[in-house]
Structure formats: structure tokens, C-alpha cells
Amino acid sequence: MLKIKNLRASIEDNEILKGITLEVNPGEVHAIMGPNGSGKSTFASVLAGREEFEVTQGEIWFDGKNLLELDPEERAREGIFLAFQYPVEIPGVSTTNFLKTSLNQIREYRGLAPLDAVSFISHIKDRMKLVEIDQSLMSRALNEGFSGGEKKRNEIFQMAVLEPRLAILDETDSGLDIDALKIVANGVNKLKTKDNAVILVTHYQRLLNYIIPDHVHVLYQGKIVKSGSKDLALDLEEKGYDWIKEEFNATTV
């Protein structure tokens, strides 16, 4: 589904990603872990098409399409969804209006007729239950005045509404208390099918107690320096990142 080959990306001549290779298949959950500043969020942003980053080398293929040739909106319409680490507040734009516009532009791209008001509302209501979100959120302006936890839940709610093929969750667990974390994880698990995939970008192992990954990768200094099963995450939780850094530095020196 997603094939990344030797991906290098920079911002203002500062290279952040230094050759990432990764393959994600339908039905899989991948966790990208790593210490602060290792390039995790950059990686998520580059997949979503953030223009501040310049891809200097490498390839990204998504369902046979060259992702690097697509604008952010085209990637979204192809089925990529990024849950932001810091969701943006947009005063004046109601969540309902925004989601309807979003959903219908995606449907149009896929050659589907726009949803009528009734189908839209019933779809929304169904998805709300999934992430245990309150109806009052719908009439509020998008993320405006939301708490950190509400914003993160709203991201997962949007994911539930848009039903992406590949969801990238960028530190969705940060800033969530344990109850909210469970709700978010529960929502992600319910959305999981054999046809879609999830990339979890996280600093801590905590979230992985609730969303069990098939593969865990450690990103350090812009490279995947170690990959393994879910047990790797437990090792990291126990030992921290220092041993990874030491291993990496030993091999590079």
C-alpha cells in the first residue's frame, strides 16, 4: 500500500530525514518511535504533503501512485489522513460545514455524488458514537477554544468521518489523560479493517498498550535505526532511548 524508498527531506537546507525506507501493507499498524528531534513529526508532515519541507531524494508510492507528485488535498482524496500533533483552530468555520465540504470534495474526486443532508447527518451521528464525542461540538467553530484533549478527539472523529486508507497519527496520545487515551485508542481500533493501515507516531509506549502495533520502528537522527515487533516498544519503555543512541553511534563512528 505504502512504499517509501530512501526518503530524504530538508527544511531550509537543514536535512531532517536522511534516508527512510518503509513498507506498509493493508491491515497493518506501524509505530514510529524515537527520541525528541529525531524527525518523527517531519516524517508525518512529509507524508501529508507539507510544503515547507523539501524532499531532496527518494520515493513515496501509495497504491501505485507517486505521492510526491500530489498536492496535500490530492493525497487526502487518495485516502491519506494526518491527525495533527497540534490541530489548528479555525474561528468562524463550523465543524459541520467544514466536514461536509471535506467529505464532498473527497467524494467528488472519487466520482461519487455528494451526500444529501440526511445521509450526511446520519453518517456524522454514527461516527460521533465511535469516538464518544458530544453533538455540541458540531456547531462550534473548528477547534476554537477546544482543550488539548478535545482537539485530539476531534482529529480521530474526522478520521472516522473520512475513513482513510492510511491514517497517520502524529503524537495523538500527547496531552491526553488516561480516559481520553482509551476512547481515542478504542475509536482507532474500531476503525481498523483488513484494507486500511495506521502509522502511529509516538514518543511513549503508553498508546501501544491500547493499539497493538504489528511493527515498531525507531527513528533516530532522521533514519530508521531499528525495527521489530511490539516487544521493541516494551524494551524502549523499560530502557529508554540511550542504548539505541549508543548502538547507532557505535556503528556510525
Binding site: R50, P72, Q105
Partner: peptide, 23 residues
């Protein structure tokens, strides 16, 4: 940042701008 956010949700640039100006 707002523009990018809307585009990652499938809104083309023109629509996203119109939505932000409308707001």
C-alpha cells in the same frame, strides 16, 4: 497553517481559501 490543515482534509486550495475568507 490553517490552509494546510484544510487541504489535508481534501479541500482544494481555492475552496480552503474561500472558506477561511468567509470565516
Amino acid at each position: 497553517e490553517q490552509l494546510f490543515y484544510l487541504r489535508t482534509r481534501g479541500l482544494d486550495e481555492k475552496t480552503a481559501k474561500a472558506l477561511l475568507l468567509h470565516a
